[in-house]
Design a protein around this nucleic acid. Structure first.
Length: 274
DNA sequence: TACCAGGGCCTTT
DNA sequence: AAAGGCCATGGT
């Protein structure tokens, strides 16, 4: 990977990332396609406009320093995905998933945003998940540009309370969101610390939140805490397991990169087959 | 273990 | 245009 300063932004070259797949594979809910190979959204409290180029991408209105500080990690650019591809192939991940997944990077999202987002995702479809999250940001986040709002902090959400969330129409999930917000706000749940404990321990801690079970906890571990061995099992992945691997399946066969295998399998099944 | 919980997207009639 | 299935689930 190489980062060079341009007028008005930075150019990242020599890195293997497919922005379309990365933003559209269901791991994050705040980016939209806003033009030819262009995506706009909010990450880490920052409005981002990013355009795919040959072998990399361009980000408007950002310095190398800011990129190195926050976004190398966000886009997981220090990880060697070619090596992971080889390891997963050896571990028996089928060619279809390897090809479909090529270019996806696991985004390292803010843990609280990941927790809140995947609570909202339960028994829900992606268009509506995005709509509810967007409403939540407009309702309780900070304005960072015209019509653009940050993801509200746990304190901001906790302060609103269940009744305060009514406008976003999260339905039965509202009480779960508030329980999560209260636990994070008062320190009962210390999300940052869960990056540095074993996966099983992180999942147990996350499952103390009402409405958080193994699937949502695994998504938070994978997309917010950097636990690449987390393997969320949802309805799509259940289908995949039945279809390709039978009931002797264990995510352990994919080792420390089971979560990346999961994402490849999910994307393959969800978007490229019917 | 089966059913239930908002709401709305999306496909089928 | 109306109906019904379904949805990156978990609680009871």
């Amino acid at each position: 990977m190489n980062v060079t300063q341009k007028t008005g932004g930075i150019l990242i070259t020599d890195c293997d990332i497919d922005l379309y797949k990365t933003f559209d594979c269901g791991q994050c809910f705040r980016f939209d396609s806003t033009g030819e190979q262009t995506f706009t959204g909010v990450a880490l409290g920052r409005l981002i406009s990013i355009k795919a180029t040959e072998g990399g991408f361009y980000i408007d209105n950002m310095s190398c320093e800011e990129f190195e500080k926050d976004f190398v990690r966000y886009f997981d650019l220090n990880r060697d995905y070619a090596e992971i591809h080889t390891a997963l192939e050896k571990a028996g991940l089928h060619q279809g998933a390897l090809q479909s997944g090529k270019g996806i990077r696991i985004l390292r999202q803010d843990p609280w945003e990941a927790l809140c987002s995947f609570i909202i995702s339960q028994n829900n479809n992606i268009p509506r998940i995005k709509k509810i999250i967007s409403s939540l940001c407009v309702l309780l986040g900070n304005k960072i540009d015209d019509g653009v709002y940050s993801f509200p902090t746990a304190v901001q959400v906790a302060t609103a309370g269940v009744e305060g969330l009514a406008p976003i129409k999260a339905g039965f999930r509202a009480k779960y969101i508030i329980d999560a917000a209260e636990r994070v706000a008062d320190g009962r749940l210390e999300l940052e610390k869960l990056s540095n404990v074993p996966l099983s321990e992180a999942i147990s801690a996350l499952c103390t939140v009402k409405g958080v079970g193994p699937k949502v906890a695994s998504c938070v571990a994978l997309f917010g805490l950097g636990h690449t061995d987390a393997f969320p099992i949802d309805v799509w992945i259940k289908r995949v397991i039945d279809k390709y691997y039978g009931n002797s399946f264990s995510p352990d066969s994919f080792g420390q990169y089971a979560g990346i295998a999961q994402q490849y399998l999910f994307y393959h099944e969800r978007y490229l087959s019917k």
